[in-house]
Design a protein around this nucleic acid. Structure first.
Lengths: 347, 347
DNA sequence: CTGTTAGCGCTTTCAT
DNA sequence: ATGAAAGCGCTAACAG
């Protein structure tokens, strides 16, 4: 969509020519002064800067980008802003991008690959310096467009050793495996899992596989796996735990949840049902979300380094943009935080 | 910061010239075909579109913007992404902007006016079609820059009858007043308030004034007002309520909180302290946050129309951008939602 | 150090 | 309906 020019400010914005005229120099001198590059005397530079400030001159980035065939724009796409995961990742990135003088063109896909693709298309038209996408799962045609555009690209949150370009994330299988080993070490033998419909959150699926791997090493399969077809929220955690506990069959001695929010819902259910946690059933979350700070009992969880991940990702992308030879894939470690919803560590 | 051009894609992107050549027409015909404007035969247009698609041609928006002195960029600034308020507002806006083909340059100020100003400066350099800022409180120098830039501007969340340009928000005094009247109607007489340090959240301060106004009409002043110097979170709600209840003096019969999160923390405290809510002390939140869905008792609250606010704001701004004569200030109504933390409605 | 000359990729304007 | 010329505001490349 093209905005009718009559609606924009008209011949008002101060331009490089105005500054040059007032300073009695050529526009090139102004250009050099503003960009702080060599080729101009200190004195003149100061004068020009002063005049530019007086006039309220800010170089038109659109013209700069066109002339220099470069931009300070970074495209950032996240699936959702609910739940603090991607917000924290974004906060981390913003820090690095801000410092380096980049602005971000933003998008929320609401987990729709088509929406992501539509946004990518519009984004590429702006010839951004770099792009950050969430996850490693995109439409094929999106990948084609991205590849053709040849813009530095970073996939965040998921980890894969073979990213399209760059990648910073956590290895979710490994995270699950580690937590599984930890729980096995605590003596748990009848694990249960509460999550959402398989395929909806592929990262969570991978974590479950990791959990299963560790428990299977001790010949303890997951007897009960209950999946909600709702979002991974407090409520679905509560309801799905209810179903699991009320179902016949062996009761789990520990329930692993897709995330802390669901775990919190589960904890609330156990409390209301009069089931002792952790003595009857243990509860384990994922992510280290801030719900934990208000939970009656701190939930045992794996903390993902979200802010750090954002910072590192941004720095890596910036390095690539600047032409450095960078690593292409980085896996960040998660930290297990022992809470009050699992048995105490066995000495 | 200028990105070295060697790092960008090189002469790869398809441009209008390539399409024109392949189609055997002038670049002007391609331009007209792509923009769907008059001055070209239907047949030629179709041919050109087809070739453009084959070649993967997407008009370079940087060049378009420079040539047409217009852009499809909207700057959006929010103070925080935690707490769902601004997230939901953003979701609402995104909907409208997306439909109209705008992209958003995004920023999170973390409640810093200086950060906001720094961002505004960088943003203006992109000559966006419009700007949305949160709240009505900005640095004077920010306002100057904004005014000089003459870009359609909309302030969201707060309401003022005299905005810089456009404004969509809720009247926080009025929201407090309404809730006060409601509580007075339920027979409460000894209200307390739990919030954060005065001045930190001016909107909350206004709501308290509204609450006080209503209670004073019945000669019931707020005897206890406790403010935390922490963020308005679960935890601070818990701790501050503890202090209030343990303090000597008349116990409040209802506590109004800055928001639902603090109210939830307060409720958790009452439950743990064995104080019956609502029979001993009532609890009232604000905003209608999703914490309510997991709360053991639904908290009585005022629901702010956040998604709708975002949608309306975006539409208003778009209208202004397109040159329409629009309203300048809109106040949206909040809805009181009766929960289980206040006495039942008196028939 | 300074200025001049060409563009960047597209649209506007004005011919035809 | 079509195209040629003239920019949009700035920087790269080259001259002095």
């Amino acid at each position: 969509m093209i905005i009718p020019s009559h609606s924009r400010s008209r011949g008002k914005a101060v331009k490089i020519e105005d500054v040059a005229e007032k300073a009695g120099v050529s526009i090139m001198s102004v250009s050099r002064a503003m960009r702080d590059v060599e080729g101009i005397s200190v004195k003149k530079r100061e004068q020009i800067i002063k005049i530019a400030r007086e006039l309220g001159y800010y170089p038109n980035r659109v013209a700069v980008s066109l002339a220099a065939s470069s931009s300070n724009l970074i495209g950032v796409s996240v699936p959702t802003l609910f739940g603090t995961v991607f917000t924290e990742i974004y906060i981390g990135m913003r820090k690095s991008f801000d410092k380096a003088g980049f602005s971000t063109i933003f998008d929320v896909t609401e987990y729709s690959k088509d929406r992501e693709e539509a946004w990518v298309e519009r984004l590429i038209a702006w010839r951004p310096a770099g792009i950050i996408l969430s996850g490693i799962d995109h439409n094929e045609s999106t990948v084609t467009k991205l590849t053709k555009a040849r813009i530095p690209l970073l996939e965040i949150w998921d980890y894969t050793p073979n990213p399209l370009d760059l990648c910073v994330g956590v290895d979710h299988f490994d995270a699950g495996k580690k937590m599984g080993q930890y729980l096995v070490g605590l003596g748990y033998q009848t694990p249960g899992y509460v999550g959402v419909t398989a395929g909806l959150d592929t990262r969570a699926d991978r974590r479950l596989e990791g959990l299963q791997y560790s428990f299977l090493e001790k010949s303890c399969p997951f007897h009960s796996i209950h999946r909600s077809n709702q979002a991974a929220s407090f409520e679905s955690g509560f309801q799905t735990t209810k179903k699991m506990v009320e179902a016949s069959g062996r009761r789990p001695d520990v329930i692993c949840y897709l995330n802390d929010n669901m775990a919190f819902g589960g904890l609330m259910y156990l409390e209301r049902a009069g089931i002792d946690c952790p003595n009857e059933i243990g509860i384990v979350g994922y992510n280290g979300l801030n719900i934990n700070s208000v939970s009656p009992k701190r939930i045992t969880t794996s903390i993902t380094p979200r802010v750090a991940m954002g910072e590192i990702a941004a720095q890596l992308l910036i390095a690539k943009i600047l032409g450095a030879n960078t690593e292409t894939a980085m896996a960040l470690k998660v930290t297990i935080e022992q809470g009050q919803t699992t048995k105490s560590q066995i000495a």
